[in-house]
Simulated scan of single mutants.
Amino acid sequence: MTLRGKILVLMVAVAVLAGLAAASVLHAAGRENRKNQTRADGPPVTAGTVSLAPGARPRIVFRSMAWGPHRDELASVAADDPAGPRIASGVKCLRFYAAGGTGICLRAEHGTLQDSYRAVVLDAGLKERAHYSLPGIPTRARVSPSGRWAAWTVFVGGDSYAGTNFSTRTAVLDTRTGQLTASLEDFTAYLNGSEHHAPDTNFWGVTFAADDRHFYATMATGGRTYLVRGDLASRTVTSLHANVECPSLSPDGTRIVYKKRVPGLPADAPWRLYALDLATLRETPLAEPRSVDDQVVWQDDRTVTYALAGDYGTDLYTVPADGTGKPRRLLTAGLAPAYPR
């Protein structure tokens, strides 16, 4: 055989081996994906009807992270039996919240070249009422107690709150009229008593009061974060307290639980949960010793729920909001809970 023939045979052999290797990798990846879609070692999930309306038996609605055909779907479980069977809705969300019979679902729309994102307003039966394009990656969502107002936050630069190299956009929607404020940066901000203007200002983590006028949120500027109180009528936000992120207002409107950066903690896990009395601005550390990167949800006036990393992505935990007790796992493989009221 000539030298040219030997080289040709070698090139064909290399191409065949490369093809076999690629096929092996794809087969293994497909097998792993099929295994994850069908594995049955997580909480039991079955298809059914999920409602955001209050029922005779209180339920938790959340994003189910259990592997299988219903992963990432909104699921429902009895609040008094959170380890019990889950009912999956078929509606997939990355972030979710609901109140007053209204839900907000932040979801990915998978495209040919890249994903896009949208905020979808849901009725009590999880039917779409309206949707809005999002300018970035979804991270927070909230609905006012009456269901009239919805808010969401996305990352438009960066993808984590742990560092400082990120930018957010927070929108507020009147679900009755469809009027959308695309960015809270359009509101007039007051910091420490003076009108504030700075190009580095970011907002995130809205939580609504029951009066359908006021809300609280985080404002970041100058390398610091602040709790601000917003007024939807006057379109203003006013600073109240420093070092507050992702606030969540108690059902009775008297306290806020939030994540606070604590000096000395690792840069990638810098937070601890605290409660703030709005009348006195007195802080109380909660009994959760781990770093929580979440906007907690109030289970009732005494207890908050939040997500921490788990075997399926995240699990949900609860802890008393007064600094007593200790955290306990509420359910495995869950994220973004809501307690329909």
Rank of each mutant, 00 (worst) to 15 (best):
V143T: 02
P58Y: 07
A287Q: 04
D80H: 13
P263H: 08
E109K: 08
G334R: 03
S144W: 00
S64T: 14
N33T: 15
R213T: 15
D301V: 15
W149A: 06
S291A: 15
D174W: 01
A336G: 07
A88P: 01
A338Q: 01
D159W: 01
T218W: 01
Y117R: 09
R95E: 12
A13S: 14
R213C: 07
Y339Q: 05
A29W: 00
L17H: 03
I7M: 12
R86A: 13
L113A: 14
L278I: 11
A23M: 08
L20Y: 00
I60S: 04
L227S: 02
L52M: 05
T102E: 00
L20D: 00
S133L: 13
T324R: 11
S144N: 00
T168L: 13
T164M: 11
Y216G: 06
D123I: 14
A47F: 00
P69S: 15
A321M: 10
V121E: 02
D311F: 04
T139L: 06
H196N: 06
T221S: 12
S239P: 02
D159L: 09
V25P: 00
T318I: 15
G163K: 01
P320H: 03
T254Y: 00
T332N: 00
A275P: 06
R71I: 13
S76P: 04
S24I: 14
A18Y: 01
T181R: 10
A56T: 13
P135W: 05
L26A: 12
K259S: 07
V262T: 14
P138C: 14
L173I: 11
Y216S: 07
L232K: 03
L10W: 07
P251W: 05
T236E: 07
A309L: 10
L10E: 12
T280M: 07
L232I: 12
Q299I: 13
T153M: 09
A279K: 15
G313K: 08
R34A: 15
P251S: 13
W271L: 10
E73N: 07
G136Y: 05
L17T: 14
D186M: 08
R95T: 10
F215K: 07
P340Q: 06
D41T: 12
D268K: 06
A23H: 03
V244E: 02
R39E: 13
L330N: 03
V120C: 03
L134Q: 08
A23T: 11
C246S: 08
T188A: 14
L286N: 04
R148H: 02
L278R: 05
A23K: 07
G68M: 10
A307F: 05
T139I: 15
T303G: 08
R107W: 05
A151K: 02
A171N: 00
Y339I: 13
T153P: 02
R34D: 15
L273F: 09
V296M: 12
